[in-house]
């Protein structure tokens, strides 16, 4: 954490979650848990975002939306699947409209389990995402040289 050179921006998208993980993600950004102390800032614009927090599984309607958001994000980018639904489809896995976890349409780097995921584990996921973002950023820089 000590040698992070940039402050990554966070984007949150609600796939098809039950809102449980969404409100926990939001709770993470508010004073009691305050994930922003790890140097991240919440944004609503995919084109400004470095880390995507995605909650909920993928269904036929939102698959293209998730893909589009992912493609709009600049490189390097990190995807963090928050909650069991985003990891595997969770309790809704057998529903006719659920394809599975977020990794069915976009590459996922970090999986945060839990139903709903607890703020502590979401923060852990964010901290890992920040470190991974830094690593990817440095790799990109050395490739350019």
């Amino acid at each position: 954490m000590a040698n992070v050179s940039r402050s990554p921006w966070l984007l949150h998208y609600d796939g098809s979650s039950c809102n449980g993980c969404d409100i926990e993600v939001l709770a993470c950004l508010t004073p009691v848990y305050d994930a922003e102390r790890f140097g991240v800032v919440n944004t609503g614009n995919p084109m400004h975002a470095d880390i995507l927090l995605i909650t909920g599984g993928i269904n036929s309607q939102n698959a293209s939306v998730v893909e589009q958001i992912y493609n709009q994000m600049p490189n390097p980018k990190v995807v963090c699947a928050v909650g069991t639904c985003a990891c595997t489809g969770g309790v809704f896995k057998e529903c006719y409209n659920i394809k599975g976890g977020a990794d069915t349409v976009i590459p996922v780097d970090i999986y945060v389990p839990g139903c709903a995921a607890r703020p502590q584990s979401i923060i852990d996921g964010i901290v890992q995402a920040v470190a991974l973002f830094q690593k990817k950023h440095e790799e990109m820089k050395s490739e350019k040289k």
Partner: peptide, 14 residues
């Protein structure tokens, strides 16, 4: 609408 539709009512069969 339909971005969050899961179809959980159908799970009664499973």
């Amino acid at each position: 609408i339909g971005f969050v539709h899961r179809g959980l009512e159908s799970l009664v069969k499973k």
